[in-house]
Amino acid sequence: MLALALAAVFYAPRHPAHASPSRPLGSAVLVDARVPGTSAALAQGRTLFDENCSSCHGTQAQGSSLAPNLRGLGSATVDLWVSSGWMPLANPGVQPARKPSHFTPSQTLGIARYVASLAPGGLAIPTVDLKGASSAEGFSVFALNCAPCHTITGAGDALSNGIVAPPLHGVTGTQIEEAVRTGPGNMPRFSTFTVSKQQLADVVDYVTRYVEHPDSPGGGLTLGGVGPVAEGFVGLFAGVGLCVLIALWIGDRNESSGESEPGHGDGSHDEGPGTETPEREVAHA
């Protein structure tokens, strides 16, 4: 119960912004061309929503003390949260992590269409058009707007207070556009004034072609893209470690007799440290 209450606190303040129909739309794309046979898809979406979502979000997606109102949110937000596996929530109160989606792509679309059909407003699922997209421009926009949280390699990282900027490996172009335009969780929403439609296509091009395949230009194992932390680990343990093992192999391991007392050598004429008394030891150093 406490966890559910926490979930409500955690999510409640974020979503009214999305739900407001007066909010300017990030993109002019309002028609989802990918769902034919609208009425059948809507019926399937309604069934899935009732079975999987309504217990928290309410039968009319009006929200409850456990989960926010989804009416007027548009299909893009619903598609993003469901297709990335964030919803249904695995663990209320914790930022949802990416996991395999509960639903097939067509089921996801059905749910998104159904929720969007309940009330007007919101952003429809965008159509990604990479024709003429420039990865160079995308890299530049990515470095300016995305890398400050997701890191420049897209590996993701921990932000303050348990909030995580998730890794970008495995995300689809549609999910990138949906996230940029709707701003899920703590992520800011980027309007077309900040990132134009063309620039967003450029970012999608860069992320899906280069960030998600960091091995492509070469150089070897990428160590998770976390930079000098992993490199230092490898440099010290594999690099210096191997060299020290080689020294062990080349050099001798014991400096004195195995039969005599440790530290005494052959005990005849050295001033070996074992001959010193503990009292002198404490005085020393």
Binding site: A143, A147, P148, C149, H150, T151, I152, T153, A155, D157, L159, A165, V226, G227, P228, V229, E231, G232, F233, G235, L236
Partner: peptide, 8 residues
Amino acid sequence: SYAVQPDW
């Protein structure tokens, strides 16, 4: 970029 460290 976030997650910036120097060499070890």
